[in-house]
Design a protein around this nucleic acid. Sequence first.
DNA 1: TAATTTCCGAGTAATTTAGTCAACTACTGG
DNA 2: CCAGTAGTTGACTAAATTACTCGGAAATTA
Lengths: 160, 160
Amino acid sequence: MRLTTKGRFAVTAMLDLALRHGNGPVTLAGISERQSISLSYLEQLFGKLRRAELVESVRGPGGGYTLAKSAEQISVADIITAVDEPVDATQCGGRENCHDNHRCMTHDLWTNLNATIFDYLSKVTLFSLVAEQHAKDVNVMQDKREATPQRARVTPTGAM
Amino acid sequence: MRLTTKGRFAVTAMLDLALRHGNGPVTLAGISERQSISLSYLEQLFGKLRRAELVESVRGPGGGYTLAKSAEQISVADIITAVDEPVDATQCGGRENCHDNHRCMTHDLWTNLNATIFDYLSKVTLFSLVAEQHAKDVNVMQDKREATPQRARVTPTGAM
DNA sequence: TAATTTCCGAGTAATTTAGTCAACTACTGG
DNA sequence: CCAGTAGTTGACTAAATTACTCGGAAATTA
């Protein structure tokens, strides 16, 4: 379980998707523009997200991506493991290098921490992130300076 | 807040130090050998750990590093932020790029998650990691192929 | 058929990781 | 005081990863 900017990009993009969930496919070009992530990079990330079955794609005009499950069912851990290669564990994956108990112990400690973080991130879903934000800062939603129709706020008052 | 192999190395090394806490300075050469981390790389990491005042150094023969505080007072978050450069936040640090509310919102969501992870890792101390491991898997401690007393393996008596 | 948008792979610059090397300072024991 | 140990610093480097580009398919709609 790593936590890099790559994963951050993926989570941000998925969040963008979650906010528009229910309004038909969202194009990568749109996400690219809104979140300032290069389109080609998004293509790479969404290739992985699709293979991990977190998103579904629709080709052609009017196409794009949608969440493959509801926002409650997609955790941050899901997203991060989808885009970050396994990368394997410690160089001694439990079998090698570990001659005496001591070495293994320090090792276990890390593995343990890793699992703890993973468990934690498994409980943080796209839905909970959005909900948390709404609870924290409602005026952001109300402060609309532009005259654009709010199709942005796909699911306004916690109706998700 | 990133979570990379670099941070993992640092945590592992600090764990090694914590296990020997109270027995005088520990040399980097020793950590290098036990944890299979290159000495020069450890030098880099401990330079940062020292500047972050997480460890103290003693020069000369018999010298080495010791924890600057007790294991309860050093969190995983402390260690990781010490070795990982700030890396800054999202490219739009709250001021730039954020033209419309929408962009800022998705942004906040990430910042929020980031803070949550950080808070969580701030509560995980070196001490709790060691304690957790003891509680979880006692037989590791009891599985002594060597004639060393299990608790006393922190002492130089059980030197490898 | 033309436009749109996903899909896919090869390639690439910049950054980070992990590590080397060499010189230097501080300290200890004899 | 001298030799050896061990931390301290900085510059430098190979390899990996990140973030991104490009070019072209393939699918879908109008």
